[in-house]
Design a protein around this nucleic acid. Structure first.
Length: 466
RNA sequence: CGGGACGUGGCGCAGUUUGGUAGCGCUCACGGCUGGGGGCCGUGCGGUCGCCGGUUCAAAUCCGGCCGUCCCGACCA
């Protein structure tokens, strides 16, 4: 078979774009940097969304919806926030054919407009915590768009909460980081992430602390898969989010925000994709298995295997399009990353078996007709774990422990560098940035996220990033 | 904004150095053979060569200008 994709590190983005095109996941939109998500990719996103939404609700937040247009003046109320976002805002100056008295921006994120409403909705400590989540599209006019990883418009969820104290806000921020985001990525996406704190330089505009989850892509770069921010009282001050405390005093609330986006689809592709296309973790895959009729004459067998798998709760599809060449159908399923294929042909049936083809391990084994259901469910279970283990092993193999800044910059040329933060520091960070290397994440010796970049004995991950 | 490439059927490209009536692969349509990994044969559809101007008997090709796209760096979920 002709090789269709070639994921060498040096041309990874091209490989990545080719895969997106061949697996029919997305197209470039009509405006530079916008993205058209095709049904195949959207089905994956829906499953991510459903899993994430359930976890967010378990964490106590409720869904709500806020305006797409935000008055420009709102952005300006928080000085760092506006400074951080100004360069990438889409600004609407006309409405109804007339120039607007005040321009509105298309939301790049919703802290400001939600802050405005939090101020109205919160009067008492009894109204707290207020835990909101929004599924929406946002716009950021980025310089270099790349499908899924960084597009001008993207889909995401953004959580916004208000709390009575710093401690409550911090605890919730970390709860989202670990129990919602990290768990989703590990258990659903089969992607290992390093969690920790962003340096002050990398911190979200307007936040007091930014926590992050970093994944390694196939070419050894880093990809931020999600973030969770403590906003301190910055936005509460800017939007007058005040409440009466139990003691009767007027106090400013402590707010947080956190988000994950369609970038996770890009992360999924770059983390798990291989020479032959996409590889989907079974729990995530919209279609977990396809029963392929190799050629005419075995339809009944194929259908009964299909029905048996449906009854067993497997998301399975029957491919009986025998008018299409077998090879084409096989490659199509492979490109789209369907974890398991059950090939049913006359030769199989004669031998009382089918052929089980696994996308993740690449194996092809005969299975007796009576054992198909058990073999498929076992394969799905095992391959979810295998994919995670493989990604973790690749990340560890691509991470080098070093002790100096120069070594770290050198190592980050091809993978991740793990180094003591004290060997880098703020000046070292600026120097690394000159070589397109950034400090991705800081974490404590026990792996937890530090409360400040000034804590002693922190470890830093340095890498190039998307 | 700095550095580098490139614009030729729907897609990917050759042809440009050395001007001579536009070609290949894929796709698509039709027919046939096939069918256990993008299969084979045949026929056919499809392009004012990014735009404007110049040189010339003759320009995809040479000259001038303009427009656009992509890649690398600064931004970022």
């Amino acid at each position: 078979m002709a090789r269709v994709l070639t994921p060498r590190a040096e041309d990874f983005p091209r490989w990545y774009q080719d895969l997106i095109a061949k697996a029919e996941l997305a197209d470039n939109g009509p405006v530079r940097g916008t993205m058209v998500i095709r049904p195949v990719a959207y089905a994956i996103w829906e499953r991510m969304q459903a899993d994430m939404d359930a976890r967010i609700k378990t964490a106590g937040a409720q869904n709500a919806y806020f305006p797409l247009f935000i008055p420009e003046s709102y952005l300006k109320r928080e000085a760092q926030h506006v400074e951080g976002f100004s360069p990438e805002l889409a600004v609407v100056t006309h409405g109804g054919g007339k120039q607007l008295a005040e321009p509105v921006v298309v939301r790049p994120t919703s802290e400001t407009v939600i802050g405005e409403f939090m101020a109205k909705w919160i009067d008492s400590y009894r109204d707290l915590p207020l835990l909101l989540n929004q599924w929406a599209n946002v716009v950021r006019w980025e310089m270099r768009p790349r499908l899924f990883l960084r597009t001008s418009e993207f889909l995401w969820q953004e959580g916004h909460t208000a709390h009575v104290s710093f401690e409550d806000a911090q605890a919730y921020t970390l709860k989202i980081l670990h129990e919602v985001y990290e768990a989703h990525m590990r258990e659903m996406l089969a992607i290992p992430v390093v969690t920790g704190r962003k340096t002050d330089r990398e911190r979200f505009a307007g936040a007091t602390s930014t926590y992050c989850l970093e994944a390694m892509t196939g070419d050894g770069k880093a990809l931020q898969m999600g973030t969770s921010h403590e906003l301190g009282q910055n936005f509460a001050r800017a939007f007058d989010i005040e409440f009466s405390s139990a003691a009767g005093a007027r106090e400013l609330a402590w707010t947080t925000s956190w988000g994950t986006s369609t970038r996770m689809l890009g992360g999924l592709i770059m983390c798990h994709g291989d020479d032959n296309g996409l590889r989907l973790p079974p729990r995530l895959a919209p279609t977990q298995a396809v029963v392929t009729v190799v050629k005419e004459g075995v339809f009944d067998h194929a259908r009964s295997i299909h029905d048996e798998l449906v009854a067993a709760g497997v998301r399975v599809r029957l491919d009986d399009r025998v008018d299409l060449p077998f090879g084409r159908r096989a490659v199509d399923a492979e490109l789209k990353g369907i974890p398991v294929r059950v090939e049913v042909g006359p030769r199989d049936i004669e031998a009382g078996q089918v052929t089980l083809v696994r996308r993740i391990g690449g194996t092809k084994t005969p299975v007796a007709l009576a054992d198909v259901m058990g073999a498929v469910t076992a394969a799905l279970e095992a391959d979810q774990k295998a994919l995670y283990d493989e990604a973790l092993a690749r990340r560890e193999a691509g991470t080098v422990d070093v002790s100096t800044l120069d070594e770290a910059i050198e190592a980050a040329g091809s993978g991740w560098a793990r180094v003591k933060w004290s060997a880098v520091g703020t000046e070292g960070e600026a120097k690394a940035n000159e070589s397109a290397v950034s400090v991705r994440c800081l974490y404590r010796a026990d792996g937890s996220a530090p409360a400040s970049q000034d804590e002693p004995d922190l470890t830093a991950i340095l890498a190039r990033s998307y």
